[in-house]
């Protein structure tokens, strides 16, 4: 029987190899995959988020922890899907049309995944049509948009307007973030939420799907 504390430690310290190894051993030993996620990996990513907020971790540490978590999740997710387990929620995330700056978006995506969400990462320079497609074809509950530049942030409004025109605005919560974004701007363009940091974005997403 593997020591599952090691899975928690491996995610917190960003040790991808150990995280995968312990996960494999645990699954082979018949441990419930959902238990691995909820009792070890989610708390580990919570701790990573806490350290990030407390300035004990910075972007490199957060990214290697997220990589360790993703490696383990790759082994677990097919099992959860096969037995019909549902994620906390489904988030379609991307940087808006015209914006290629994705590091903030990647931090949020990683922490959302660590919080039990299924993340549909649409990448950078994402058109309104792609967000709409994610809502229609993949049943995303949340559309999360990021922009680094004052010149690209108007694409957030364009995307929200396009969601409305496509008749899907009522189906999703829209969350936005990025250096030039403010709560005032979020209110002006009719977004459902704004967070100035990645940890806050996860809390916002949980609230949006009614789990917090």
């Amino acid at each position: 029987m593997p020591d599952l504390k090691q899975l928690y430690d491996a995610v917190v310290s960003g040790d991808a190899k150990t995280a995968q190894l312990i996960t494999k051993e645990a699954l082979a030993a018949g441990i419930d995959p959902l238990k691995l996620v909820n009792e070890h990996m989610v708390p580990a990513m919570d701790e990573v988020g806490r350290r990030f907020e407390a300035n004990e971790y910075f972007v490199p540490e957060l990214l290697i922890s997220a990589r360790a978590m993703k490696g383990a999740l790759e082994l677990i997710r097919p099992l959860l899907i096969a037995r019909g387990d549902k994620p906390v929620g489904r988030v379609a995330i991307g940087t808006v049309k015209g914006d290629l700056h994705d590091i903030g978006k990647n931090l949020v995506a990683s922490l959302l995944e660590g919080g039990g969400f299924e993340v549909l990462d649409l990448g950078v320079n994402v058109s309104p049509e792609k967000f709409i497609e994610a809502v229609n074809a993949k049943q995303a509950d949340i559309v999360a948009m990021s922009a680094l530049l004052t010149t690209t942030m108007p694409a957030m409004k364009t995307t929200i307007d396009a969601l409305t025109q496509a008749g899907v605005r009522g189906k999703v919560k829209v969350l936005i973030g990025g250096a030039p974004i403010t709560q005032k701007y979020a209110d002006e363009i009719g977004a459902d939420g704004y967070s100035e940091n990645a940890v806050g974005a996860v809390a916002l997403a949980k609230k949006a799907v009614g789990v917090a």
Partner: peptide, 10 residues
């Protein structure tokens, strides 16, 4: 690539 460089440190 900024995302990759961040992990290269480790």
């Amino acid at each position: 690539g900024i995302n990759t460089l961040m992990m290269d440190f480790y």
